Computed example of a mutant assay.
Amino acid sequence: MPRQVNHDERRRQIAEAVWRLAMRGGLEQVTLRQVAAEAGVSARLLQYYFGTRDQVLLGALEILNAEAERQARERMACLGDAPSLRAIVRGVLLEMLPLDEQRRDRHVVYAAYFVRFLTEPTLAAVARAATPELANLVSDLIIRAQESGEVPAGIDAAAEGAFLTAGAEGLQTRVLLGQSSPECAIEVIDRQLDRVFGRQESPDAT
């Protein structure tokens, strides 16, 4: 009896091939034929699961984002049953840093997508939505912290959400390039959180 194909596994197999190509040399010149060869499938099967070249890249990005969310939820669960809002904000920001092999590989893939984000409307729309969503999440968490008395009422939550996420993005690039160590990047994040939430003993990095 022939083995039943797991379509989710096959889509992930193809997505992982795109990620490997992205980490090795970027995505500007990647073709459907190269993706198919890397994934060990036919070009026809590749098109069956995703369609055009742009749809392959977009689909691989969507799977990568879903994987990032799953890993982030797992790390957030390690904060305990009732983490402070500061700890949750810190966890969100640390997900933006390449602090381990999983996160480093993910951010290298995102960097490979960057040029395509600038030049291709379909991918650009996805990129434009991602950062505001994170900034809005951090802003909402700061507002909740203001309501609970953890953050002074005078803090501009929207401005801080934008600043903290932009700062984490900049630190991400510096760590990837070896211009800053992960430890120094975490210290910068913690100093900014001290400014917003008040000084606290820094927890272990996650």
Rank of each mutant, 00 (worst) to 15 (best):
A111Q: 13
A157G: 11
Q179T: 05
V18T: 04
H7W: 11
R103V: 08
V196M: 02
R195P: 00
Y48C: 07
E28G: 04
A129F: 04
A145Q: 10
S148P: 02
G167C: 08
L46K: 10
T122L: 08
P132Y: 08
G40N: 07
V175L: 14
L94M: 08
E69G: 11
P98F: 00
R128L: 03
G149A: 03
T52S: 15
A205R: 05
V138L: 13
P132S: 13
G40F: 15
D204F: 06
L21D: 00
V115Q: 07
R10V: 10
L141H: 06
L137E: 14
S84L: 14
Q13A: 13
E9C: 02
S202V: 05
L134A: 14
T122N: 11
L118M: 14
A17G: 12
R90Q: 00
V41M: 09
E101M: 05
L94Y: 13
L93H: 03
R70D: 13
L57E: 13
V115K: 08
A157W: 07
L94V: 01
G51H: 07
R33K: 13
E169T: 12
E133F: 02
G80M: 02
I143P: 01
M96L: 15
G149L: 04
R191Q: 11
Q13T: 10
H107F: 13
P121N: 08
A22S: 03
L177H: 04
L57N: 07
P98C: 00
A168F: 06
Q146V: 03
Y113M: 08
L85P: 04
V151F: 09
I88H: 08
A145D: 05
V138E: 11
A153M: 10
A168M: 10
V108I: 12
G167K: 13
V175T: 04
E120N: 07
L32I: 04
Q102Y: 15
R128G: 05
R24M: 07
E187K: 05
G25K: 00
A15V: 01
R103Y: 09
R106P: 06
S139W: 01
L27Q: 01
Q29G: 09
Q71D: 14
R191N: 09
V151D: 03
A158L: 11
E62S: 14
R75S: 12
S148L: 08
R174N: 10
I143N: 05
R174W: 06
G25R: 00
L164Y: 05
T119L: 14
V92G: 07
A130V: 11
W19P: 01
I14N: 00
S84F: 03
L58F: 01
A124K: 10
A168V: 06
V109R: 04
L94Q: 14
D156M: 11
A112N: 02
V108L: 15
R106E: 12
D194M: 12
A72C: 09
A36T: 12
D8R: 09
F117V: 06
A130R: 06
